[in-house]
Nucleic acid binder design. Structure first.
Length: 393
RNA sequence: GGGGGAGUGCCCGAGUGGUUAAAGGGGACGGGCUGUAAACCCGUUGGCUCUGCCUACGAAGGUUCGAAUCCUUCCUCCCCCA
């Protein structure tokens, strides 16, 4: 094996937790051909977040060294539900939902991947198979092989249910690898089992077995659980700049090393204070998806709202028309509930707690909850720290 | 097919006839503080036309002055045996 191949493999494996089987990637690289690198994503949620980016970035590495990426949109497997890392069954999505998610997915992925070197496939292309072919697939792996995995093992021990559908899932994912003849499959460390089982399925079909590479899992902005849409602790690549910046400023300080390592691929600048380092993180991520100037604006807005407690300039305007009663007064709970999508009971609570301000001064509930239009018009209504509306006649 | 168990508010989870809109925790939200939407502290957390009214403890009925708590039927889920 030549030194250059060893170096190349080392470079590609940089940042990965595992690349299996040992030495396999090196062998593949020695063939000096573009490798077909697979990533499967189930369109269970419409947003690609920073957690996905860790794997997508690695795919981009492969592309830069001349390899091909096959992105598989799991429109069919999404209807099954991946049991990986789950301690309970996953709700199965409606086909229409899956479809609309799939569409937005590609665009987002191309924020990171090179479209020229990416092939997008939907696994319904080959998974919508006759029973006969399904039997062939099901015969390729034993129940014991599937139940061996950690997730299932835990559930069995805890007397939790496992559906047949879930047992099927890794086989379907493995069949994707057969269908596209993948050389390498990437995924998070939670995908290790599924990725490895793909090799068994490939072997059974007599096609060359892929090597696999597992990337670390990015913690969510709560700093505790993995980043995921369903946990609501994610930063989406299509989030507006202020959102991305704000969300990143809210991660616990001790989650910063993970973010620097996995998202920015560098060390936390030791010379910076935690606050500055987190700002740098926020700016860098915003700049990546929205550009430098957006990053500056996002930070400026953050400081305005959270540090100075000021009202930003670019507040969206809302008309009071339709809210005033015949006497020309506006019922505040109703206004707030319509404008910000909270219940009117919640709006009342916010007012009582001093969380509602008009041009910066808290509204007191003592003077009643109805205010004349003249007292509201031209002013900025603020609910909590982050919600604003410029009121107009 | 037989036997056993469970379904409570956003989530987990107490509660077995009467101040129960329902303990506690998590999450979320608001306030304080701060270097941040970190951390920490305090508070709020069913809805509404809100000093009152309505809806709520899987569903529908029933018993009762009164039920999340008792009875009946149904639905869903889990476990064990076959």
């Amino acid at each position: 094996m030549t030194d250059s191949v060893v170096d190349l493999a080392k470079e590609l494996k940089n940042g990965a937790v595992e690349a299996l089987p040992a030495g396999r990637l090196e062998e593949q690289l020695e063939e000096s051909r573009p490798l077909r690198v697979k990533l499967g994503i189930d369109p269970t949620a419409p947003d690609i977040h920073l957690g996905h980016c860790v794997v997508l970035d690695k795919l981009a590495d492969f592309q830069r060294s001349g390899h091909e990426v096959v992105l598989i949109i799991g429109d069919y497997t999404a209807r099954v539900g991946d049991p990986s890392g789950r301690d309970s069954q996953r709700p199965v999505l409606a086909p229409t939902e899956i479809e609309s998610n799939a569409r937005t997915f590609q665009d987002q992925a191309f924020k990171i991947l090179d479209p020229e070197r990416t092939t997008v496939r939907f696994n319904s292309e080959w998974l919508d198979m006759p029973m006969e072919d399904l039997f062939r697939l099901l015969g390729s792996v034993t129940v014991a092989q599937v139940l061996e995995r950690d997730d299932f093992d835990k559930r069995i021990k805890a007397d939790l249910p496992i559906s047949v559908l879930e047992i099927l899932y890794p086989l379907l994912q493995g069949y994707d690898s057969v269908a596209i003849r993948s050389d390498v499959e990437l995924g998070g460390t939670d995908q290790k089992f599924n990725l490895l089982l793909g090799r068994d399925v490939q072997r059974s079909y007599g096609v060359p077995e892929q090597s696999i590479m597992c990337m670390p899992i990015l913690p969510g902005i709560d700093g505790k659980q993995r980043m995921s849409k369903s946990l609501g602790n994610y930063v989406g690549v299509t989030d507006p700049p202020e959102e991305i910046f704000g969300k990143l400023m809210s991660i616990p300080d001790d989650a910063m090393p993970s973010y620097y390592d996995l998202v920015l691929r560098r060390e936390v600048p030791g010379e910076l204070s935690p606050n500055e380092a987190k700002r740098e993180l926020g700016r860098s991520v915003v700049a990546r998806f929205h550009g430098e100037s957006a990053a500056e604006r996002a930070e400026a807005r953050f400081d305005q709202i959270h540090v100075s407690g000021e009202i930003p300039e670019d507040v969206e305007e809302h008309s009071l028309a339709g809210f005033a009663d015949p006497e020309g007064s506006v019922h505040l709970p109703l206004l707030i509930s319509k404008l910000f999508g909270v219940s009117s009971s919640e709006a009342r609570r916010l007012i009582e707690q001093g969380g509602v301000k008009l041009d910066g001064s808290p509204i007191s509930a003592e003077h009643g909850l109805d205010l004349p239009v003249s007292e509201l018009s031209g002013k900025v209504l603020q609910v909590g720290k982050r919600r604003f509306a410029a009121l107009q006649d």
